[in-house]
């Protein structure tokens, strides 16, 4: 039914991992959207940048560590990962702290990218 239509989907992640389910669910939808052969971008803003912090150890909270999935996204042709520069800086983070390669963008670049999307999902 959806064959032949390619839309630009953007996933906007603004929540930290583990404190709520949104980061995990966002990954689920990203993977399914990629399976539908859509044009997928994933953006990390505000506390969403914590999702990409290296070194997550979740044994002590008895929750699955889903952070390795971000590195696996490339294998599903999800390669457009964008991080808001100001959100990183506000949290004392640099690209070195992140577990996957991303493109760091200024606010106005991110805004322009958002304005080009067909579907924007917030997590």
């Amino acid at each position: 039914m959806s064959e032949g239509i390619t839309k630009k989907f953007m996933f906007v992640n603004r929540t930290a991992p583990y404190g709520s389910i949104y980061a995990l669910e966002s990954l689920e939808v990203v993977l399914i959207t990629a399976a539908f052969d859509q044009d997928v971008s994933v953006v990390f803003i505000d506390d969403g940048v914590w999702q990409l912090k290296k070194g997550q150890q979740t044994k002590g909270i008895e929750t699955k560590n889903f952070s390795p999935t971000y590195r696996a996204l490339e294998g599903y042709d999800v390669e457009k990962l964008y991080v808001d520069r100001e959100s990183l800086a506000a949290r004392g983070l640099t690209e070195e702290d992140l577990l996957v390669d991303v493109v760091v963008m200024d606010a106005d670049e991110l805004g322009k990218l958002m304005a080009e999307q067909d579907v924007i999902l917030s997590f």
Binding site: S2, V29, F36, I120, L121
Partner: peptide, 20 residues
């Protein structure tokens, strides 16, 4: 049904509005 129904909705609908 599955999450595919959300993605399909994003593809088929002219606008998707999220409430949360």
């Amino acid at each position: 049904s599955g999450l595919g129904q959300l993605v399909e909705c994003g593809i088929q609908a002219d606008r998707l509005v999220v409430f949360g």
